[in-house]
Design a protein around this nucleic acid. Structure first.
Length: 469
RNA sequence: GGUCCCUUCGUCUAUCGGUUAGGACACCAGAUUUUCAUUCUGGGAAGAGGGGUUCGACUCCCCUAGGGACUACCA
């Protein structure tokens, strides 16, 4: 590996499903490292398995990456399209005597698999040292001719030196009997051709790294640096799966998480910079070092994700939040109206501090979206005794007298009113809130009044107490 | 079965041989409070177990246990 070449990292998912949250973190770390070093971040779609790869999955991965803001610096490479380069590499290996044709049948292979496993050794092909006879025209695969002795050590940036005995490594198939290249060959050729200097990928490839290192060596290619990330587990420590709530980044988007919050949270999972918990992309880029990534698997913690998301919602631009919330209301089929939407936009800054997700922000703005006359909930109806109604009438005129319709102006008016009435705010506050919101969540009284706007607020009170303006 | 990886509060982590083992989230208690929330204050909470090395180990080594990955003509 060289420290001289400009850094090139890559995220190489196989398009057999959505973009997994673990994959998203892998992409993030690749991206952070590329940015940190002023290098290049690439994306490659590993679609050599034509059976399982789908265009929908490719699109889902692109969508996920785009949402996260982690897009390739150059055009995306599709592995399947590079088959000629893969085959050429195999021919070179064949010519060098570092690969051979294997005519074993599936039955023979299965038998060998069983005996080799029983004997505790790697699977071997009997064609390894046998020349194919002239009459041999049965289908064959091309296998890598790996060394039988010695060891291969991977200087992993995260795990440290990992040593594998060569005899444990089987002669992997390079070319299938239909002539198509396999993954382990394709990655090596592609990473080499794309100039990848740092392979940062999931833990599950750690064992493959040794096999791949051997191929680099056989081809006389410079080996890139390896860094194997531990996988993300569910809150219970088991492999992340459907029952943990979500796996796909699209689901996180649907649940109302902001991409910048996801980046911050994901970066913090397995990596840290001292006591810093909340940091900007610029800071993450400045601080990120692959070698600082932890070696042990981390669990997804919803509570912390929520906390981080809440922080970023507070920071987020109100217009952007309002647009996001508008689509949520739309998806929930909340009846839209220009006036309601306008109130919602105005309400966002007033209520956003209490929201951990955009879904919650939608909940918190629902009350302003309602149309008059409101359907009051049972609790509110119960509060509306004649006495309370009369008090609300007086309160209504008190607030309507306020010159400014702002939280700062209305707050003291409400307090003064309670004092004038000789009661605590608790005597009419809940009723007022109910009248204004119809029972939906609402912020403090002054904020609720402001969020609704003068006319709407006064009208809602009038509706409930049966008084005209 | 074999090979490889991992192991600090409930969770994410700091510590890079000498600390009262720090922070964040969560939790508990109290204060504020018109609901929920917010905010503020305080609190409990950890080095898997066992051996070494060392004047001294969370930190280095070994063993055990527990997790995980790989062991495909999948990626």
């Amino acid at each position: 590996m060289s420290d001289r070449r400009p850094v090139v990292t890559r995220f190489a998912p196989s398009p057999t499903g959505f973009l997994h949250i673990g994959g998203a973190r892998t992409a993030l770390f690749n991206w952070l490292y590329a940015r940190h070093t002023g290098g290049t971040f690439l994306v490659r779609i590993e679609d050599t398995d034509r059976e399982r790869s789908t265009p929908e999955a490719v699109q889902a991965i692109f969508d996920g990456l785009e949402w996260l803001g982690l897009t390739s610096d150059r055009e995306t490479v599709f592995q399947a399209s590079r088959a000629p380069a893969h085959v050429a590499a195999v021919e070179a290996l064949l010519a060098k005597g570092r690969a051979y044709r294997c005519y074993m049948t599936v039955e023979e292979l299965n038998a060998e698999r069983e005996t080799s496993r029983a004997e505790g050794r790697a699977i071997r092909s009997l064609w390894r040292d046998r020349e194919a006879g002239a009459g041999e025209n049965r289908p064959y695969t091309v296998r890598f001719k790996g060394p039988l002795t010695g060891e291969t050590v991977i200087a992993d940036l995260i795990k440290g030196d990992v040593t594998l005995q060569n005899k444990e490594l089987d002669d992997l198939v390079l070319l299938r009997s239909d002539g198509s290249p396999t993954y382990n060959l394709a990655v090596v050729v592609d990473d080499h051709d794309m100039g990848v200097t740092h392979i940062i990928r999931g833990d599950d490839h750690l064992n493959n790294a040794a096999r791949q290192a051997l191929i680099y060596e056989a081809l006389d290619w410079e080996r890139p640096a390896f860094a194997h990330l531990p996988l993300i587990h569910g809150p219970d420590g088991a492999k992340l799966s459907k029952r943990h709530g979500a796996q796909a980044v699209g689901e996180f988007a649907d649940m109302g998480y902001l991409p910048e919050a996801m980046r911050n949270y994901l970066a913090r999972l397995g990596w840290g910079h001292g006591d810093d918990e909340i940091f900007s992309d610029a800071q993450a880029i400045e601080w990120f070092e692959v070698s600082d990534v932890g070696a042990s698997p981390a669990r997804l913690d919803w509570a912390k994700l929520n906390h981080v998301n809440q922080h970023y919602i507070r920071l987020a631009d109100d217009a952007r939040l309002a647009a996001l919330v508008e689509t949520i209301h739309h998806d929930r089929q909340v009846p839209p109206s220009d006036a309601g939407l306008a109130r919602m936009r105005a309400a966002v800054p007033l209520v956003k501090e209490g929201a951990q997700t955009l879904l919650q922000l939608a909940d918190l703005t629902l009350f302003v979206m309602k149309a008059r006359p409101l359907d009051l909930d049972d609790k509110t109806r119960g509060l509306l005794t004649d006495e309370t109604k009369a008090r609300l009438v007086r309160l209504r005129s008190a607030v309507s007298a306020s010159e400014d319709w702002t939280v700062a102006a209305l707050e003291p008016v409400i307090r003064a009113f309670a004092e004038t009435e000789g009661v605590g705010i608790g005597k009419f506050g809940p009723a007022l809130r109910g009248v204004l919101s119809g029972g939906s969540p609402a912020p403090d009284l002054a904020s609720a009044l402001v969020a609704l706007g003068r006319d709407e607020a006064l009208a809602r009170i009038a509706d409930a107490v049966g008084t005209d303006a």
